[in-house]
Design a protein around this nucleic acid. Structure first.
Length: 352
DNA sequence: TAGCCGTGGTT
DNA sequence: TAACCAAGGCT
């Protein structure tokens, strides 16, 4: 079989330039990595930077060192540990998959079997199969899409370009080192074949690269135009009773699904403020600005103190949490910032 | 298919 | 500053 110069050159580059990551074995390592660790990393890394996922991976692994341990965890504990990382459906699917794997008695070891688990799609199934089990799967993530679309000057706009990209890459996957090959391409995309201003002079694949030869690597990959994000607004209610704060839990699916939250109005482009009951309300001078994937939110916060605690607010069941427990409640970032704004303000008043 | 789904860093 | 982007999956 002839030597594939593309896989040879990228693997050679990887020997010298692989990023040292806590879940990764060094290039050329003959010992297979623990599939649980690889899976946990891959889920956390979906649409998430290495820098953001790293501390979460270490904490999860310390608390739940095996898939069996994770399978026994309480849902609320897992959601609290995930708080701040975003895309909370990943955490719900992670736990569901852990329980399925634990019940099955063995970790799925093929791309096809991995693909059946919740939270594991085409990319993640191929990545785990290649990295943890040595299966010569064709791994395609956003980095590899960029590298391959430049390498072969594929002008079809994403996401339709996915199939031609996969077809172009598949013949180059080395059967003996598919995991290193995938990770090498991802590292190359992250450090060298970057979205803007790619460092072609430092790239081991530039001799093979059609976009480099054309002089316009920046033009790839071609992407469909994306819609602009609408601006929405809303009001959160910070309701104190003695030392306690009223919290709700968001519905199990959808935005911030299953996460603790402050009660409040809905969010919309022209959402009017209203209060859930008559009281003396004080509105914080500045709303909390928070960007979601498909809209931007300005969340104002209205504060009051009540004499008699209620079991529900605006139809939502309420739990009362002590002030000192707020930092450990596992708020998603939006509500963590809203709570901080309130607590910072009351702190100022004490000082003044 | 395309919209939904978080957050923080980079340019 | 605003847009872009990240080891995507689900419906």
């Amino acid at each position: 079989m002839p030597v594939d110069s593309i896989s040879r050159d990228i693997l050679r580059w990887y020997e010298k330039n692989a990023r040292a990551l806590p879940w990764r074995h060094p290039p050329g390592c003959t010992q297979a990595p623990d599939p649980y660790r690889v899976w946990l990393a891959e889920i956390m890394l979906q649409q998430t930077t290495v820098a953001a996922a790293g501390p979460y991976w270490l904490r999860f692994l310390g608390r739940w060192p095996t898939v069996q341990a994770l399978a026994k965890a309480d849902d609320a504990d897992v959601m609290r540990e995930w708080a701040g990382l975003g895309y909370y459906a990943r955490a719900r699917n992670l736990l569901a998959a852990a329980r399925a794997i634990s019940a099955a008695g063995a970790f799925p070891s093929t791309e096809a079997d991995l693909r059946q688990l919740p939270g594991i799609g085409a990319y993640t199934a191929a990545a785990i199969a290649a990295i943890a089990f040595g299966e010569p799967a064709t791994v395609i993530d956003a980095n590899i899409e960029r590298v391959v679309s430049r390498l072969f000057a594929i002008a079809t706009p994403l996401p339709a370009a996915k199939a031609p990209i996969s077809a172009a890459l598949a013949p180059h996957v080395p059967r003996d080192r598919p995991g290193d090959f995938a990770q090498a391409l991802m590292d190359l995309g992250a450090t060298t074949c970057t979205p803007r201003n790619p460092r072609c002079l430092a790239c081991p694949l530039s001799p093979h690269c059609a976009a480099h030869a054309n002089g316009n690597p920046d033009a790839y990959p071609v992407k469909a135009a994306k819609r602009l994000r609408p601006k929405k607004q809303g009001l959160a209610w910070w309701i104190e009773h003695g030392d306690d704060i009223a919290l709700i839990r968001r519905p199990p699916r959808g935005l911030l699904g299953g996460m603790p939250a402050l009660p409040g109005t809905g969010w919309a482009t022209d959402q009017p403020f209203h209060m859930p009951f008559e009281a003396e309300w004080r509105i914080l001078p500045e709303p909390v600005s928070h960007g979601f994937t498909h809209f931007e939110l300005r969340l104002s916060v209205a504060c009051t103190t009540i004499a008699h605690r209620m079991a529900e607010i605006a139809g939502n069941p309420v739990s009362w949490i002590s002030r000192k427990d707020i930092p450990a409640i596992g708020f998603p970032t939006l509500y963590a910032r809203a709570a901080k704004a309130v607590l910072d303000q009351s702190h100022e008043q004490v000082i003044l």
